[in-house]
Amino acid sequence: MTEATMTAAIARSEKEVSERSPLARAFIYAALVAVSFVMLYPLLWMIASSFKPDDEIFTSTSLLPHAFSADAYRRGWNGLSVGFGQMFFNSLVVCILVVIGNLISCSMAAYAFTRLRFRGRGFWFALMLGTLMMPQHAVLIPQYVLFLKLGWVNTIMPLVVPKFLAIDAFFVFLMVQFFRGIPRELDEAAVMDGCGPLRIFLKVILPLSTPVLATAAVFSFIWTWDDFFAPLIYLNDIEKYTAQLGLRTFVDATAQSDWSALFAMSTLTVLPVFILFVLFQRLLIEGIATTGMKR
């Protein structure tokens, strides 16, 4: 028996001693299952209720509708003067443009901060970190006035254009963290191979950064999809509404008289996020974890 295997064996037996008893384990499991159940129940119930008639929503806590009906989706989809299809499309357009804008502008800024040598880099980096903490409310009104003067209010420009200017410092920060992990010798090899900064960025850094780009893309999409405040301020005409605004309008319009339709539309607005979550769960969780760990 080598020393290493012996140490490992000792460590293992020690660990077994320190592990909790089966009873404690069972208790933890039971607690976790209970918490999961309570947390998920409202969501599942919302989905179930979208297939129930209205009277059943207020009389049944069950997840299984007695009388299954998808009619609420039809009523909801056409429940406003402009169909939800249009609003989903609007949301999709905004989200895709925001994703593109964030990926381009934030990766450029992160590349400059991590890889290029220029005067004032540390100063700008410190300012960028400062904006991470700054609440948007401080700049809200002048931004609104600016977009108003530019004639951009009631268009998607205010929702999209700032993202092409790396306004989401969080993503710059996320990418800075990732770029720092790419060995500098690769840049130098590329320099020896005759690459300038642009070619290094496009041919070396970006291809190696697909994980962080994907993370940023998915988070950008989800946060933009869920965003309510900016569309509320900037979009006035119902045919320009995003899905979130549409849903809010639907709450007012139905005056809560058609809950199943409301839940049907709620379910639909959550669905894209849910799908992205299922597809990219790992990326999202790792993205959150890394930003939390390495500040």
Partner: peptide, 11 residues
């Protein structure tokens, strides 16, 4: 130049 870590492009 041949680098210490070889610096081969991983992708």
């Amino acid at each position: 130049m041949v680098f210490q870590s070889y610096a081969l492009y991983p992708h």
